Amino acid sequence: MSKNSKDTAGLTLAERIEGSLNGFFGRNKKTLIVVALIVVVGLATLGIVLSVSQNNLQEQFNEIDQLEASYVELQAMGSDNEAYQETYDELVASLTDLAGKGSKYPSQKAEYLLGMIAFQDEAYQKAIDSFLSVYSNADGSYLGSLALANAAAAAEELGNDSLALEYYTKIIDEFGFTAAESPKALFGQARLQEKSGNTELAKATFQQLADQFPTSEFAKLAINRVALL
């Protein structure tokens, strides 16, 4: 039996494992130090990236707050104001720039405001494009249902009732009765069903609206419509 065998024969399993680990660390000390440094640098870099990303996102939130305030000011200004066109151009340029910076809330809100501006300019197809872009990136947030409701209104302005009905239906199908736009969506459905001659379905939808949202302003209108059908 070798001397090493004699030395280790009386050791416990834990002692033998500890000896093996010490030997491993001794033989690979430099490699382990390098690996540790790489891990530390990697974590530090990740922390910097996350910090920069968070700062950028906060800047975008601040920016959209300012742009939304500018949008409100523009509505109050009126198109006959001498500064209107310059303010309009600057706002649209800033909103377009922010809308192109990703799919986070500030970018979605910027795209939504572009849709609102296009709607007011009677550029209804452009408005629909913006609203649908918001809807596709909203991931179930309130902006999604809001954008669909506005897309439906723009489709009606274009005379495309079937498309408007599709958007109103999407609100109910995808958001149920929890969205703030749900009463409006049901009313829009019923109104367009009645317009297309589908009286019985329209009556049922008006009644569903009255039953589901009895305190809504749309419910009162729905009850009146049911009485007339």
Rank of each mutant, 00 (worst) to 15 (best):
residue 169 T to H: 05
residue 13 L to D: 15
residue 61 F to C: 00
residue 52 V to C: 01
residue 201 L to H: 07
residue 95 L to D: 01
residue 143 L to F: 09
residue 15 E to K: 05
residue 113 L to E: 03
residue 160 N to E: 13
residue 166 E to N: 13
residue 216 S to Q: 01
residue 64 I to H: 00
residue 175 F to W: 13
residue 119 F to R: 13
residue 140 G to M: 01
residue 189 Q to V: 06
residue 218 F to W: 13
residue 71 Y to S: 04
residue 81 N to D: 14
residue 24 F to P: 11
residue 190 A to P: 10
residue 20 S to M: 11
residue 47 G to S: 05
residue 27 R to I: 09
residue 143 L to Y: 10
residue 194 E to K: 09
residue 97 D to Y: 01
residue 13 L to K: 14
residue 22 N to I: 11
residue 4 N to I: 14
residue 203 K to C: 02
residue 104 K to E: 15
residue 163 L to Q: 15
residue 119 F to N: 08
residue 193 Q to G: 05
residue 6 K to A: 08
residue 218 F to R: 03
residue 135 Y to W: 04
residue 111 E to T: 07
residue 40 V to R: 08
residue 170 K to Q: 10
residue 190 A to Q: 10
residue 165 L to K: 13
residue 11 L to R: 09
residue 71 Y to F: 12
residue 171 I to R: 04
residue 215 T to C: 05
residue 42 G to V: 03
residue 168 Y to I: 04
residue 203 K to H: 12
residue 85 Q to I: 11
residue 211 D to N: 05
residue 103 S to E: 15
residue 176 G to V: 06
residue 113 L to I: 09
residue 143 L to P: 08
residue 11 L to Y: 09
residue 75 Q to F: 02
residue 21 L to H: 08
residue 130 S to K: 15
residue 91 L to G: 02
residue 132 L to F: 05
residue 165 L to M: 13
residue 140 G to A: 01
residue 131 F to M: 09
residue 164 A to Y: 04
residue 199 T to K: 12
residue 15 E to Q: 13
residue 18 E to Q: 11
residue 113 L to K: 06
residue 141 S to N: 03
residue 62 N to V: 01
residue 145 S to G: 15
residue 203 K to L: 06
residue 88 Y to V: 01
residue 217 E to D: 11
residue 29 K to H: 02
residue 192 L to H: 00
residue 153 A to W: 04
residue 51 S to L: 12
residue 142 Y to W: 10
residue 73 E to K: 11
residue 220 K to A: 13
residue 67 L to H: 01
residue 26 G to S: 08
residue 31 T to K: 09
residue 183 P to M: 00
residue 79 S to C: 03
residue 216 S to P: 09
residue 95 L to V: 08
residue 204 A to D: 11
residue 44 A to S: 10
residue 76 A to D: 15
residue 45 T to V: 15
residue 1 M to P: 06
residue 194 E to R: 07
residue 193 Q to R: 13
residue 118 A to Q: 10
residue 158 L to F: 06
residue 70 S to M: 06
residue 203 K to P: 02
residue 215 T to F: 08
residue 92 V to F: 04
residue 171 I to L: 05
residue 10 G to E: 10
residue 142 Y to S: 14
residue 177 F to R: 05
residue 144 G to Y: 09
residue 62 N to L: 00
residue 121 D to R: 07
residue 187 F to C: 03
residue 127 A to K: 06
residue 205 T to S: 06
residue 20 S to R: 06
residue 44 A to G: 12
residue 1 M to S: 11
residue 153 A to D: 11
residue 66 Q to F: 04
residue 135 Y to E: 08
residue 99 A to G: 04
residue 216 S to C: 03
residue 3 K to M: 09
residue 4 N to K: 12
residue 174 E to C: 07
